[in-house]
């Protein structure tokens, strides 16, 4: 019954937002637990993607009970910018990681504590 109604009922913004939340939390936990700098970077990507999913969901009027709330194209555009930003961020972060690796012959972010108070 539950399963049946699961597929017959329409999904709304909330469902997408829930998926986005899962992605976000996965990314955050990834950042918090991975010692590898690239792992941290992947966590960041997950977080950004979760945010993206939210933007997409908010942009679609059809997902709302009341479509006046929808962001419309602005939401999609924001997500495009986020994607572009993420790409740039990945490039820079990778460059930083490589520099870090070159200087410390390590990729462990725990070693990067020079700014410790």
């Amino acid at each position: 019954m539950l399963l049946a109604s699961l597929f017959t009922e329409p999904v709304g913004v909330a469902h997408y937002v829930a998926v986005g939340a899962v992605l976000f939390v996965c990314g955050a936990v990834c950042m918090a637990t991975k010692r590898n700098a690239l792992g941290v970077l992947m966590g960041v990507e997950l977080v950004l993607n979760g945010a993206n999913l939210n933007f997409i969901a908010f942009s679609q009027p059809a997902l709302y009970a009341d479509s006046a709330w929808a962001l419309g194209l602005d939401g999609q555009l924001a997500s495009i910018f986020v994607i572009v930003l993420a790409a740039a961020e990945a490039a820079v972060a990778l460059a930083i990681a490589l520099n870090f690796y070159n200087n410390f012959t390590s990729i462990d972010v725990d070693h990067a504590d020079e700014l410790k108070g």
């Binding site: 709304g12 913004v13 937002v17 939340a21 899962v22 997902l63 709302y64 009970a65 709330w69």
Partner: peptide
């Protein structure tokens, strides 16, 4: 896990508590 789980719980609650976000 604890911190992430609590954040997830909060976020999911937020997602489904807003009636405007639910499908009609």
């Amino acid at each position: 896990a604890v911190v992430g789980g609590s954040l997830l719980a909060v976020l999911l609650q937020v997602a489904f508590r807003n009636p405007a976000w639910l499908p009609g």
